[in-house]
Amino acid sequence: MFNIIKSDFYRVPKCKNLIIALIIMLLLIGTSIYLIEAGGISMSVSIEPSDVGAGEVAEEYENEYQYTGVNGSMSEIRETTKKYLKGYELDRDILRWNINLYYVFIFIAVMAVSSDFSNGSVKNTLSSAISKRKYFISKLSFVVMGCLIFFYLNTFIMYFANLIVNGKEFSAGFRTVMEISLMQLPVVIALAGILNALAFICRKTAIFNTVAIPLVFIAQMSIDLLCRLVGKNVGTVKTENSFANYEADRMFRLLANNPTGIYVARCYIVCFAAFILFSTVGYNV
């Protein structure tokens, strides 16, 4: 089993996909840090005062934005943002957007599992090196490891790049960043488990991509629909919220925002259940 993981560490760095995944990750970090806006892609202002931890300046910032307008050059927008959002913990906010990494994780599952099935090379491994059970466990281990490596690479690069480019006043501090990343760890592992299972279920890369790419939207829509249905039946808004909070995107966001102990514990249970459920299904396909 160890040899299979070792062989994947030999092969995967030779894949072009790895370079693409790294570029995507660095682009997300780079744009987020340069524009001082988590998410890194959108130029629109979507900062909620409660999220940034600098409520009093956010309103002023919104006004200034209306004055400067989004037509200003990127450097102008950046300077305005820096001026009015001092104390904005950008690194914490970027961690809230870690659902973006899901798309990077897809690359890992494709490189580790789907390519093996698509090329048919899986039969070489199964016929001469290992059993199906150990093959599944090896691939699961590799995908989880790969996702964790990318997750921490993203965290460290983002933290230090933010420190260098924007300075201390835009950072929550190394300890906080590490605490948040540790809290988000089960979500990353659950996503890795889900993607690995999907790769085993779909087998071919094209089918896997078709399923995995829109999965986050589908999950969000389904949970939203479920919440509305259940919420309507029960007649409370509270139920709707509690359901929705255990969707991956929400978990990333809320776990980065000083969550309660109960919420963290529930997130861990949800992640563990999802990991076990999907891995069991993936193994048995």
């Binding site: 092969r11 894949c15 090329n119 048919g120």
Partner: peptide, 25 residues
């Protein structure tokens, strides 16, 4: 074994492909 068509990673060289399986074995 060589069962059905030979299947290897297209972007890897012949040596790299065999090395990959050598590590596995």
């Amino acid at each position: 074994c060589l069962i059905e068509n030979p299947a290897f990673f297209p972007n890897m060289t012949a040596y790299q492909n065999l090395r990959y399986y050598a590590i596995q074995k």
